[in-house]
């Protein structure tokens, strides 16, 4: 690499940048919450049975004329004569009456949908990620050191939270595929961070680091040495995610957006956050050890 950039020195800018998005995200989550899809919020499903072929666009228009906004219209039945229309929120009695008037009482069946399963899945995913984090901490502590383990978990949670925050800020809808996207990023982020830490570990062995200036140099060198790899890797996965976003089906659009956000922040955090967090902790640890030389020698 021909260019030089002091990644460690500018850490406060990076921390600030992440802090601003985090705070904005937390505020947004508190005020507006997430834009939950039918998988996570209660809704109503209206089933319409007809003796002739139905058309989803017509049905959508019919409902919009009634002042209702269907989330989705799915046709089924032998001749596409059954339509399942989903709504967010529970429809009022008057609204259901309007629908029944339109399609006939006998042909209309309205049910409230319980989001319990989606909620449970999300809760379960969160729980699993937390346990996985403990596993990662143990493994990285053994193969690297525990400060790196903690720093890589910070980066991982950072990336996952960034997706959630940006989805809240942009008011994008959260459905079950969102959970899969966040999990993908968790896997990607840890992979990305470990590669940088691996280089730091290698360079630490080669040079005797005593001051925080030397530590900063090792970290900067390591980031620069892995820089081409970091950029090229994120570029290829971003290409894949972009292709899914542009050419993929509508139903995975939000999934691709979540991936894209996560990938960009994953690369950013492994270059600009993880090592810097580790630097702050490591230099503190080094100072402490200097104050107590006796324990250091033992």
């Amino acid at each position: 690499m021909n260019f030089k950039y002091d990644f460690v020195h500018h850490r406060k800018i990076f921390f600030m940048f992440s802090a601003i998005i985090t705070i904005a995200g937390i505020l947004c989550l508190f005020i507006f919450k997430l834009n939950l899809g039918l998988d996570f919020s209660s809704g109503t499903r209206v089933q319409i049975t007809s003796d002739h072929r139905l058309n989803d666009i017509d049905i959508k228009n019919d409902f919009e004329k009634m002042g209702l906004k269907p989330e989705s219209v799915v046709l089924s039945g032998a001749k596409d004569n059954i339509a399942s229309v989903s709504f967010k929120g529970v429809l009022s009695k008057e609204e259901i009456a309007k629908v029944k008037e339109q399609y006939g009482d006998k042909n209309t069946n309205a049910n409230t949908v319980d989001p319990m399963i989606g909620r449970e899945l999300a809760r379960n995913a969160l729980f699993a990620v937390l346990i996985a984090s403990i596993g990662i901490i143990i493994y990285v502590s053994i193969r690297f050191e525990w400060l790196m383990a903690l720093a890589s978990i910070i980066a991982l949670l950072h990336d996952a939270f960034m997706i959630i925050a940006i989805f809240s800020i942009l008011r994008l809808e959260v459905d079950l595929t969102f959970v899969a996207a966040v999990l993908t990023i968790v896997g990607y982020s840890i992979n990305d961070t470990i590669v940088v830490f691996d280089r730091i570990r290698e360079n630490m062995k080669l040079s005797k680091v005593k001051t925080s200036e030397q530590l900063a140099k090792v970290i900067n060198d390591s980031i620069l040495q892995t820089f081409t790899r970091s950029i090229n890797t994120v570029l290829t996965v971003v290409i894949a995610a972009l292709a899914l976003l542009i050419f993929g089906s509508e139903s995975i659009r939000n999934f691709s957006i979540a991936l894209l956000i996560g990938l960009v922040f994953g690369a950013y955090s492994s270059i600009c956050i993880a090592s810097q967090v580790w630097f702050v902790w490591k230099s503190k640890q080094m100072k402490k050890q200097k104050l107590k030389p006796a324990t250091n020698k033992a």
Binding site: F127, L183, Y188, I190, I194
Partner: peptide, 15 residues
């Protein structure tokens, strides 16, 4: 890098 990812995935699979 891969072992760490597999480890995370294995926990996700188990729980």
């Amino acid at each position: 890098a891969n072992i760490t990812t597999i480890l995370a995935a294995a926990v996700l699979f188990a729980f």
